[in-house]
């Protein structure tokens, strides 16, 4: 009896495994059909880096997140203040210049955006950060487009679109997307 029950239970387990396999295969198929035509690399969100580094860097990151929230709520002055304070306490924080550049692009300050992007790129240095390339290229493209260099802007925006299509498909980086 015990043996029979053992056999039946192993058969049950087998059939369960088969069903599970079928489900996994079906889901995988769906996933394949739903997947975008191009694979997306890591997308940079500042909240992911908020807990990195020492206390000063973390405080600087929190100010950046406050700034992005303020930008998202349309409080541009408050946002700028937060970015500037983030830089004041940690002038080596590359994310601060990136967030500032995004803000400046949004405010139409193309030359300032260019300077902030240069500083961000420099501070990201050799290692960079996952997904930062897309934002750097995209913001450069957006600044160039704003400045009137449409022809040169497009390849940069295209590159950003290829690297992070979910963010850069519309050619813009919102505060929420960077957050």
């Amino acid at each position: 009896m015990a043996a029979a029950s053992s056999v039946s239970s192993s058969r049950g387990a087998l059939s369960l495994r088969l069903v599970a396999c079928a489900l996994v295969a079906a889901l995988a198929g769906c996933a394949l059909r739903l997947a975008p035509p191009q694979s997306e690399g890591a997308t940079l969100h500042l909240s992911d880096a908020a807990q990195e580094g020492d206390a000063t860097r973390r405080a600087s990151m929190r100010l950046l997140l406050q700034g992005l929230d303020a930008d998202a709520a349309g409080r541009a002055n408050a946002a700028l203040s937060s970015y500037e304070r983030a830089i004041q306490i940690d002038a080596t924080n590359p994310y601060a210049y990136l967030a500032l550049a995004r803000h400046e692009v949004e405010e139409g300050q193309w030359d300032r955006a260019r300077e902030s992007l240069d500083q961000a790129e420099l501070l990201f240095g050799e290692e960079g950060a996952p997904g930062v390339e897309a934002h750097l290229a995209g913001l450069r493209g957006a600044a160039a487009a704003g400045k009137g260099y449409g022809e040169q802007a497009q390849p940069l925006l295209d590159r950003a679109g290829r690297l992070a299509p979910s963010v850069w498909a519309d050619g813009e980086l919102s505060a929420e997307e960077l957050r």
Binding site: A144, K147, Q152, L156
Partner: peptide, 14 residues
């Protein structure tokens, strides 16, 4: 000049 500088900056990143 500023615009030429901006263009040069752009060219470097293209």
């Amino acid at each position: 000049d500023n615009d030429a500088g901006f263009f040069e900056w752009l060219r470097r990143h293209l």
